[in-house]
Amino acid sequence: MRRSAEPFWWLLFAAGGTVAAFLVPVSIALTGLAAPLGWGGTAFQHARIAALVSHPIARLYLFVLIALPWFHAAHRIRFTLAEGLQLHQAGRLLAVICYGTASVGAALALLVVVRL
């Protein structure tokens, strides 16, 4: 019996992991360290940043940067909970909770991004 849904979640996991690997570190450096600590002078002034993120390409970039790694994390958390706490019986429920949460997150991200 083939389990047909697994490849879909694995592809999302792989895409999210790749986006996270390439883009999250520099993002943390920028918004978590540079912006609050004032590195970069006038770069983080509101008017400039607001204009930057409102660009359609920027919005698409930001949505992908947030949503895909959330599905990557959902997949990893799903398996880690099942393996770490030996919850294999609850496998289906875990999957629903994890991917469901990521889906809600992606929807929220979409809502924020369209209003930038």
Partner: peptide, 9 residues
């Protein structure tokens, strides 16, 4: 990473 992205959003 997921937690950071919440802060980021």
């Amino acid at each position: 990473i997921a937690a950071y992205l919440v802060v980021f959003l």
